[in-house]
């Protein structure tokens, strides 16, 4: 092996060793004493989920809240995204194009969790904050995707309506929308799937739904209750995946 290869390798090795020393990670304690037994005990707590009626009812309410948060959040985002996509696709001139692109980028650049933390401060604890957080981030994503779909759709059908005297609004609805709406629906459904998963997590910063229940249970070391919440999340995500797959086949193909 040549020296040119050895030097980076040695530097990499030194960096790894230095990282362990700097962080003071004690790998030995993972297996020392009764650590393994303690881990087993903690994990086994999750193997007996709490299926009591009261807890299941609470989970049902939480799941509904998560579902509603993601649905309303995605719907608001789709409407806001479409409203922003029109100027972002250059329909209202160059200044509007750059201004809305900047706004969309800003909305998209801030992750949902950060929006949720901000919205909890602004709108208080609970599902309101989660819905707003999802709506704002997703509006940035969908606005960008919608704008690209609008740019790539042929202009001629809408131009033909304009040339036979139709207004801008009807020209858009008759000429442009039929070409793009399958894409708009597909993008929105996909983001809804994402948002259901995200809505389950947003509760960790206090934004309602199943996530908040999971956070509470875990903080109180109620492994049994936490396990039920995780199972419920899993079921919810699977159900929504199936539903949106069916919807896509039904309406988008």
């Amino acid at each position: 092996m040549r020296a040119g290869n050895l030097i980076p390798l040695a530097a990499l090795l030194a960096a790894v060793v230095a990282s362990f020393l700097y962080l003071g990670i004690d790998l030995a304690s993972l297996v020392a004493g009764d650590s393994l037994a303690q881990m087993g005990q903690y994990a086994s707590g999750f193997l007996q989920p709490d299926f009591s009626t009261a807890h299941l009812q609470a989970i049902g309410r939480g799941a509904l809240e998560t579902l509603a948060m993601s649905a309303i959040g995605t719907l608001l985002a789709a409407l806001l995204g479409l409203a922003l996509a029109l100027p972002a696709a250059g329909r209202f001139g160059g200044v509007a194009l750059h201004a809305t692109r900047l706004l969309l980028n800003a909305l998209r650049a801030i992750p949902e969790l950060v929006w949720a933390a901000l919205m909890v401060l602004a709108a208080g604890l609970g599902p309101n904050a989660g819905t707003l957080a999802l709506a704002l981030h997703t509006a940035g994503v969908l606005g960008r995707l919608f704008a690209e779909a609008l740019e790539n759709t042929p202009r001629e059908p809408a131009d033909a309506i304009r040339e036979s005297g139709g207004g801008r609004m009807v020209a858009f609805c008759y000429g442009t929308l039929p070409g793009v709406w399958p894409q708009l629906v597909a993008y929105t459904l996909y983001r809804w799937e994402n948002n259901i998963r995200m809505a389950s997590v947003l509760g960790f910063v206090g934004a309602g739904g199943l996530g908040q229940m999971l956070y509470l249970s875990l903080s109180l070391f109620q492994e049994a209750q936490a396990a039920t919440v995780i199972l419920a999340m899993l079921l919810l995500v699977l159900a929504v995946d199936a539903l949106s797959g069916w919807t896509r086949q039904r309406w988008v193909s």
């Binding site: 059908p157 131009d159 036979s164 005297g165 207004g167 039929p178």
Partner: peptide, 30 residues
Amino acid sequence: LRARIGLIHQAPPLPPRQRVVTAVLAGKLG
């Protein structure tokens, strides 16, 4: 004024997913 003029295009610019009935009725949108 354009609403009083009818255009027939060589390749009619009709959205592929639009139904014929809608495409024809679009003639009177002006």
